[in-house]
Design a protein around this nucleic acid. Structure first.
Lengths: 190, 190
DNA sequence: GCAAAAGTGTTGTGTCTACACCCATGT
DNA sequence: ACATGGGTGTAGACACAACACTTTTGC
């Protein structure tokens, strides 16, 4: 572990469970001549991941060189790994959370945390967990529809025993990361 | 170089010269137990750099593990290194450029490319080079002043022989990276 | 009918682009 | 006087938050 010539790949996988953002961590020593992606795939079960991106490379407190990746899993996916433990893992988990938080605002990355179809309230819970602050379902719907991130899906969700209007279902229009909020400032002239 | 156990730090330094964005690249093998920052400082003259951040880690085509950094230099700083050559270096330079371009829009990172004091036209040239598209001096001034990124400096620039109104000087309010455009969307409720 | 949950209408605010117009200098 | 470059005024487009109101269900 503390071998100064070895290279470790750390996977930080985030997902929303029970309205909370959960982080799981796994690490693997990259074999010589092994690609970073291959090492990552040995670290976690990538079949449950809807999005992966590189986070950062640093030297851990024990002297190991480590490259961290962020993975996003939809609810219910089996992820593996363990809860972050130790300063390095906690810092990397925090970095992953910060990255997710920023990208939720200006990309469609929510697709990687949401199920296939969902109501706006369910999506709201996911955004609240990911962003760490309250979000209005009303405005969330309007913003994401206007940006073309969401589209209506067939069917509705029947209300529970306490009643209420049945909710329509929505889905993400794309499952590939795209930047949706071209910055209004300093954009090219038409 | 192609030793699969060695770790290389690649510095990509961007600066604006003659209204063009120029990239210089330097690389260094990181010594065992050497920090990433120390290796970076061996690669380039950091005294001329106003901002540094990590770009990405990848395995180069020759099999070497490489961690790339982006450095930004003000005009006239002596940088060292060489023009990007080879696919890897060109791709890393392109990644650096993309990163700069995005950050110019929503941070104050322009401070790292601009001299101490400058006219709006001069700043406009820097933004045009960094963004790769045309920018209106009128709106650039207003956006950056409104965001508090720029402030007025003392003095004016005398016109050249072709005449024209003398230009006032401005400076960046801060020389530390800050995100200036909190995304209007999905921001926390007050 | 009443409570609960979902969704729409509407208003106000802020930030941006575009462009007309005014200002200060050299020749 | 006129050209040149700097800077301001202002109008219009757009995206957002906030909140009142309507819709659709269970009980």
């Amino acid at each position: 572990m503390a071998d100064s010539t070895s290279h470790v790949v750390v996977a930080v996988v985030l997902s929303v469970r029970e309205r909370r953002l959960e982080a799981r961590v796994a690490r693997v020593v990259r074999a010589p001549a092994e690609s970073l992606e291959a090492a990552f795939e040995r670290a976690v079960d990538t079949s449950g991941l809807a999005h992966v991106e590189q986070l950062e490379t640093r030297i851990l407190r024990d002297g190991t060189l480590a490259t961290a990746y962020l993975g996003l899993a939809r609810p219910g996916a089996t992820v593996g790994g363990h809860a972050p433990s130790g300063s390095d893992e906690r810092e990397l988990a925090a970095a992953a959370q910060a990255r997710l938080r920023a990208k939720l605002s200006y990309t469609n990355v929510g697709f990687a945390l949401a199920p296939e179809a969902f109501t706006i309230s369910e999506l709201r819970d996911i955004y609240v967990a990911g962003l760490g602050h309250d979000v209005s379902a009303t405005n969330l719907q309007r913003v994401l529809l206007r940006r073309g991130v969401l589209e209506r899906a067939d069917g509705r969700r029947e209300p529970g025993r306490s009643g209420g209007r049945p909710a329509s279902l929505f889905r993400f229009a794309s499952s590939r990361l795209t930047v949706t909020d071209e910055f209004a400032a300093l954009r090219p002239r038409r």
